[in-house]
Amino acid sequence: MSDGTIDGPFGSDAVLAGEYVLHLLPPEARRAAEDRLAVDGAFRALVAQWSERFAQLADTVAPVDPPAGIRAALRQAVADARHNERRRRGSVLGRLFAGGLGGLLAAGAAVLFLTVALPRIEPPYSGPLYAAQLQGEDSDLVVQARFDPRDNAITVLRQAGGPAPGRVLELWLIAEGAEGPVSLGVLPEGREVEVDVPDDLAGAIPTGTLAISDEPPGGSPDAAPSGPILAVGAVEDA
């Protein structure tokens, strides 16, 4: 318990979870609870239970129509997000890449889409983690990618293989239903590296597919991969 003065039933996790949901914990204790949510499934379940129960109290809150300007501003904001994404994708090259990826996927069982067996990490609004295991048929590259939506960052861990001499690895996102890939950037050197995902792409990661291509230094000169796809894998709940 945060103040350490009360033990017994007052110190129980159920009470702590209730205080967390009511937003009664001081900032440090609240952060500690959030850290715990990320790793402790039983505590997460308690928080979810209190969240459901207290949300019923919102029945007593009368709906109030917000001013129309808010809807208009949001409509504009999401339109801009989609426009930027489309521009980045590059339609012609995107389709070329989609063909290449299609071939790779058609290779079937040889291409493995493995979900990494990580503990489920899904605090009610700190969010789950997502993971993808990337590998390919003709390459020894094996990469584990983990996406944390709290800071929109992908941690990429190279488990086997690496870039060819004088070449680099570039990470791509294929959003669900998208025609082609969007570059998430050239992977920095190192076995474990972090890649920041732009805010407007982050929403597509959980249901997307990640791929890694072989590229010249500096990355693909095009909006789509210029070299072979070395590894690919679907993103799953971790």
Binding site: A45, A48, S51, E52, A55, A58, L74, A77, V78, A81, R120, E122, P123, P124, Y125, G127, P128, P149, D199, A202, G203, A204, I205, P206, T207, D237
Partner: peptide
């Protein structure tokens, strides 16, 4: 808008979320 992809995994009812 940004976090809708995380909803299905969090176990809460949609209005609670």
């Amino acid at each position: 808008w940004r976090n809708a992809g995380r909803y299905s995994a969090n176990g809460l009812s949609p209005m609670t979320w």
